[in-house]
Design a protein around this nucleic acid. Structure first.
Lengths: 190, 190
DNA sequence: GTAATTTCTTGAAGTACTTCAAGTTTTTTA
DNA sequence: TAAAAAACTTGAAGTACTTCAAGAAATTAC
C-alpha cells in the first residue's frame, strides 16, 4: 500500500528496515472521490498528499467565477500548499481529485516528529522541493515564451497520455488559455 | 562577512559553534560586477548563490532576442537553477547581477560533504526550497488572474522600493508585458 | 564634461487571444 | 436506459495587449 512512496524515497535516500517501520506507522491512506476537495480557499493547509493512484489538481477560482488549474499531480507526486503549510496562513487554492484517487496523507505535526526520528527524510523532502521549484521555473519559462498553440503542442508532445486523461477545459486553464480556444487549436482552426 | 547567511540559517535551525566553523570553511564570498553573468544558457549549474548584498536575476532570451526575467533575487535570497543542478543538464537560463553584488557561493560537491557533516542544513535547505516553491505558485496565480495593469500595481504596492531599484524593462518582462506597455501604464495612459 | 550607451516614452497599426451565445456530443446518474 | 449534467464546438464581435519606429531623457564611461 505504501510501496509507491517507499520506492520514491529510496530513489533519493536509503532507509533501514526499522526506519521503514517508523515511517509506516506515521502514514495514512485515504481514497478521494472524483471532484472531492481536500483543501479549500481560506483553509490552512496542514497536510501533505502523496498520490499513489489517480490525479489531483490545485486550482483557483478567478473573478469571473472560472476555475483555473495551477498544478496537476499524478502518481508519485506530492501535492500541497507549502505557503499555507509553512506560514500557517489561509490558502489561496483549492486542491481536488480530478479522478478517484488513492493518496497517502501526512499531517504537519506527524511529519515534524517523523523528521526528527528519521533525519534522512529531510534530505528526501529537500530534493523533492528543489526539483519542484525547478519545474515551476520551467513552467513560467514556457508560459512566457510560447504562444497558446505552442504550449498546447509542446505539452501534448511531452505528455500525450495525460492530455487524454483530464477534461480539456482543465488543461486549457493550466496552459493559460480559454477552453474555447483549446477547442479551436485542436480542430486546427488557428 | 558570512553573518547574513548565518542569521538566515538561524531563523530555521540552530547551529553549534563547531558547526558554524565547519560551515564557514566551506563558503566563499565573491563580488559580481553589474551585468556580469554567473550562469549562461547551456552551462551546467553546479553552484548555489546566496546574495549578501545587491540584486541578481535569472532570465532567458526569447526567439526575438529579447531578455525576459523569470526571477529576481535580493539580499538573503538563494538563486540557482535547481533543475540543471540536480539533473546535471544544461541550463535554460542566464543568471546575472543587476547591480554590483556580494554573494556567497557554494559548489555542489562542497555542499554535498557539508550536508553530511551538518545534517541540520538539510532541514534549512528543505524549508527554503518549499517556501520558494510556494512563492512560485503564487506568482503563477498572479500571472493567471491579473491584467498587466493589475500586476504592476499589485507588485508596486508590495515592493515599491524594488520598483525603483531595477530598470523598468526588466520589471516589465518579469511581470510578463512589454517595456512599452509598462511605460504607458505608468503614465496612466491605459 | 562630452560622447556613447542605455533606458524610457509616445502614437499608430496589428494580432493573439477572450467573451458571448447557442448548439452538439459525451458522460454520469438514478 | 432515459434524463440530467458535464464537456466540447463553432462563429462573430471585442479587447488587451504587442510590435514597430523614432525621439527624448537619463546614466555610464573615458
Amino acid at each position: 500500500m505504501y510501496k509507491a512512496l517507499f520506492r520514491h524515497i529510496e530513489k533519493i535516500v536509503t532507509l533501514e528496515p526499522c526506519e521503514i517501520e517508523i515511517l509506516e506507522s506515521c502514514l495514512n491512506v485515504s481514497t478521494i472521490k472524483k471532484k472531492e476537495l481536500v483543501l479549500q480557499e481560506g483553509q490552512i493547509c496542514n497536510i501533505l498528499y502523496f498520490i499513489i493512484e489517480g490525479c489531483m489538481r490545485q486550482y483557483i477560482i478567478n473573478d469571473k467565477g472560472i476555475e483555473q488549474t495551477l498544478q496537476f499531480g499524478i502518481e508519485n507526486w506530492w501535492i500541497t500548499d507549502y505557503l499555507s503549510y509553512h506560514n500557517d496562513i489561509p490558502s489561496h487554492f483549492y486542491i481536488q481529485a480530478v479522478e478517484k484517487s488513492e493518496v497517502i496523507t501526512i499531517e504537519k505535526s506527524t511529519l515534524e516528529t517523523l523528521l526528527i526520528q528519521i533525519p534522512k527524510l529531510e534530505r528526501y523532502f529537500r530534493i523533492v522541493a528543489q526539483k519542484s521549484f525547478g519545474a515551476a521555473q520551467m513552467r513560467i519559462k514556457f508560459l512566457f515564451t510560447m504562444s497558446a498553440e505552442e504550449r498546447y503542442h509542446h505539452f501534448n508532445g511531452l505528455h500525450p497520455e495525460f492530455v487524454q486523461r483530464v477534461p480539456q477545459y482543465m488543461l486549457a486553464s493550466y496552459l493559460d488559455f480559454s477552453a474555447e480556444f483549446m477547442s479551436k487549436i485542436r480542430a486546427g482552426k488557428i
